[in-house]
Design a protein around this nucleic acid. Structure first.
Lengths: 354, 354
DNA sequence: TTGTAAGCGTTATCAC
DNA sequence: GTGATAACGCTTACAA
């Protein structure tokens, strides 16, 4: 590979001049600059990124460092999100470094290494927990970062985040089902480990409250860990006496809804919105959801918009660590809930399942 | 961030000793090493990756640098593949740098920059064209790389690739349809720009040959660029006189199959394998394909295995640029077609659509 | 077993 | 306008 020395030698100037010419400094004779540019092209010279970042220059790489969830739902969402994020990065002229953080690894160490290595300009964090130690860590480490998702505890930190409003989303769903005539609405969820699971559940509770329905413990199952478990829970629910049996099942994710769809069939009931049928809903609107039969009524996470806002925010922080947050294009979906904090509204997508 | 100097100072030794202690050299007093390790941890010291790679050390980062296809099919496959690849990289303790190469960009320059930047140890190339200039380029640049997919022209190069056998796959599909009684089998494809599209089409031709069917130009449409076009082509095909009308439609990808499914319905026909119905098949087995109604009969690309083989191969090249290729776990799906060249067999997945 | 010093390829500071 | 030269943080001969 050609280095700056090769260019300098061939041009008969010093490396300083080459550097300045190529970096667009004004104090270079225009003729000299043109010559240097021509030679650089000719030699296929590209500045070594490692050397540049040693000098504290930008790498134009950002990291996406989510926690690795072996959960299949998490995995399919991860694929979709990563793909969209990579596409979005392309538009911002950034490369995306995907670094998964294993569940058995020393989390703090992984992030410290990522930052200390100097490989990336900024970080996108995901899979935020109710109280997430990574936020304090990255703040301490003084690297620009944005989280996708937010903590639930009201810690004083004003960290930058973008989140999809799970509370409001599920609340809307409860409202939709209520208007469809449902009065006994169950809530099914994976374990409430990550913030988004809590937010969605909270939306369920607020929804019930808003529509004057009381929460019935029997109808809330927030510990569905695997398919077998889901099956048994559903068959239990659908075997309840008819006056307490749920007529609608809200699930915390599309993937879970998928299992529930199967389970309901196995229990001998039909999914749908006709009388006597069981309504089932999801959350995410992953690509497969549109193709299920019946099509899944769900809440669409606006992934593309999310990534755009994440990058707008991160790029602003990259440019100027302590400046005001950017004024983002105001979409009806998007609201600012803090100086650097944004919430996007999921969209109710009605299909046949509810 | 703590540097090696900080550690050295606190330990009261030179930076050399710190470097050797931390890199596991044998010529360091074990006590000294332990002390240094303790101090390094205490100080949260992590070697700066830029500085290391300036010394020609490994970065433990590999790049995935596919061409950006605005095509939706390409996009959904890209997401799936990238996600699986990232997951696989995690197991190999590698980070994945995703760098999309825009269609309007200077391709050569992008790859030169990627290599010249010194950011990555190796590269995974995708979207291989019949004759792909990137292969010669990366060879010249002398960076380890593996391609997903292969060229079609028999250029003499013995470059490392892993590919899914599209020829054999579609051939199998023709055989399957033949045994189902189909004699008029159409082939539908996006434009034949990339190798895999050509391979799949070639499989169709070989299949016809093998089963004594003659190729009918009317039944081959390899220029479907968009949905509208697909609709019109399908309605044309299904309006042919019954003695020449196709009873089965092989498509070059699941995504195209999706459009075809809709188009057939619009043309007033039913998709399926009953008499009088139209058979439709795909290629890829993307997640949504199982959920279509009717479920899509297709050829599954073994993405996970593909990524494993890609990484096995690349990691071997990383270790020792000119050594023999690794002996990979022999699966029935996998065959070696050259020293560094592997072919995986797609699997026929029969569902209701054919 | 440890330290000194050169060098990896840049950019930035300061002379000229 | 241009050029020495000193960083940046690390690894690795070569010395001691």
């Amino acid at each position: 590979m050609a280095t700056i020395f090769d260019v300098a030698k061939k041009a008969g100037v010093s490396i300083t001049t080459v550097s300045r010419a190529l970096n667009g400094y004004s104090d270079v004779n225009e003729k000299t600059r043109q010559m240097i540019i021509a030679i650089a092209e000719d030699l296929h010279y590209y500045p070594n990124a490692a050397a540049r970042s040693l000098q504290g220059k930008k790498t134009n790489v950002i990291a996406f460092a989510p926690l690795l969830n072996n959960h299949l739902e998490a995995e399919s969402f991860f694929k979709e999100f990563t793909g969209v994020l990579a596409l979005a990065c392309f538009k911002y002229d950034l490369s995306l470094l995907v670094t998964l953080v294993g569940s058995d690894s020393n989390v703090e160490e992984v992030y410290r290494e990522l930052v200390g290595s100097g490989r990336v300009d900024g970080i996108i964090l995901a899979d935020i927990k109710p109280e997430d130690e990574r936020i304090g860590l990255l703040s301490d480490l003084d690297i620009p970062y944005v989280t996708f998702g937010r903590t639930t505890r009201n810690i004083a930190l004003d960290y930058p985040f973008v989140d999809v409003d799970g509370v409001n989303g599920v609340k809307k769903m409860v409202g939709y089902l209520y208007k469809q005539g449902h009065r006994r609405i169950a809530y099914l969820s994976e374990p409430l480990n990550l913030s988004y699971t809590l937010h969605r559940y909270e939306g369920y509770r607020q929804g019930l409250l808003e529509y004057g329905l009381s929460e019935d413990e029997q109808l809330v199952r927030t510990n569905l860990e695997n398919e077998a478990h889901t099956y048994s829970v559903i068959s239990q629910l659908l075997a309840l006496p008819s006056e307490v049996q749920p007529t609608a099942l809200i699930t915390g994710s599309d993937y879970l809804a998928l299992q529930v769809l199967q389970a309901v069939s196995r229990a001998g009931k039909v999914v749908g919105r006709e009388a006597g049928q069981v309504a089932v809903t999801g959350f995410d609107d992953l690509p497969f959801s549109a193709y299920l039969r019946p099509g899944l009524t769900t809440l669409r996470q606006p992934i593309t918009e999310t990534c755009t806002v994440l990058l707008d925010l991160l790029v602003a922080l990259l440019k100027n660590k302590h400046t005001e947050a950017p004024l983002l294009s105001s979409s009806t979906k998007l609201s600012r809930v803090g100086p650097h904090q944004f919430l996007l509204q999921p969209e109710l997508v009605v299909r046949e399942s509810a």
